[in-house]
Nucleic acid binder design. Structure first.
Lengths: 189, 189
DNA sequence: GGTTTATGTTAGCACCGCTAGAAAAAATAG
DNA sequence: CTATTTTTTCTAGCGGTGCTAACATAAACC
């Protein structure tokens, strides 16, 4: 078995192209600019073809992109923290986190903002989300019930969003990261 | 002059009804559920009437609601901080901020998330936003360049959004606020 | 009362996500 | 190689969105 039919392969490739086209356009123009018509155009087919690959339509496409985003962000955070702890680790993970959110704003939006994930936290995302959470917990040396990590995560999330919305001075990023490390390193609950 | 014509009064009342209907429905069902047709229906007129009051259409309606949100949130934060400082002030302002965001999710969304405010930060919102920012600065005793306040604000923003998205345990709210106060009170830069 | 001005409605545009049913292409059987 | 079945793709269209021009109505003014 597992003979990858030429048929199957073309299908897989096209699925990838749909996801890539959606992510690229979303990051550049926002999710509202990602329309099924444009997407179909981008892959050289008509709309109904999209629904063969993603029966859930645009929502499912966003969901898949969000899931891949969770995997990638977790990997980046883990890699940034490594074996270091304390302020150095906090700064490293903050840079990784904020860079990802800035580089892929639409992916990040699909992950946390879009009303996609109602009943999706408890499914496949759970392990990924948990792994990323633990990378943050390691960085801030959270040995409690996770509250400190939650607050740290909230700060990262909030800063990324407010930076994106143009509400924070872009040049102050490094100062914010230093401040973040100062806030979350010293107190040991 | 300045004779408040019955005409003018009816117009003002209707404008208010439009805003109220939009905010109510948005908070309950989300902004996508706020359609011009429904809105027109809610006030007992047809669509074009909306555009007489708000030539910018739905976008302008959201903008006005966001602006009123800035005024209200600032008022609440100022009132919560009052003359107190330190951890007590931090906790008080955090409760006020998070309560507002939770009570009026759509208003909060219009304020910070919706791509409305591109060229609107430097306009009317500037003073309001600044005033609210200063309330937060007072709470955390920021005597520096505002970086600490930015990080604190980011934490509040992020926590409110992640709570709303169901990403944080709802019952952990008070623990997070305590942790927040601990993080942002002790270090004096 | 007649005229001007403001107000409201009807009808329609271009776009959206999505889908049923016809047409084309590919795989399978004889 | 032909005939049949299965899969894939397209055409056409549904109900919805924000928004607007052109017409009808109501109010204010002289």
């Amino acid at each position: 078995m597992t003979v990858p039919t030429a048929r199957q392969r073309r299908s897989d490739e096209r699925r990838r192209r749909i996801l890539d086209a959606a992510q690229e356009r979303a990051d550049a123009e926002g999710w509202t600019a990602v329309t099924t018509r444009h997407l179909a155009d981008a892959i050289g087919y008509t709309q109904p073809v999209l629904y063969r690959h993603f029966p859930g339509g645009k929502t499912e496409i966003m969901r898949v992109i969000a899931f891949e985003g969770f995997v990638e962000l977790t990997r980046l955070c883990r890699s940034a923290v490594g074996r270091t702890r304390g302020p150095r680790a906090i700064e490293a993970v903050a840079v990784a986190y904020l860079d990802f959110a800035a580089a892929h704003p639409a992916v990040y939006e699909a992950m946390f903002q879009q009303p996609i994930e109602t009943r999706f936290t408890s499914e496949d995302t759970e392990p990924e989300l948990r792994a990323g959470f633990e990378a943050l917990a390691d960085a801030v040396r959270d040995d409690g019930d996770g509250t400190k990590t939650e607050v740290f995560w909230g700060a990262l999330h909030g800063i990324s969003q407010l930076e994106r919305a143009g509400r924070m001075r872009p040049e102050g990023r490094s100062r914010r990261i230093t401040e973040l490390a100062a806030c979350f390193d010293q107190d040991t609950p």
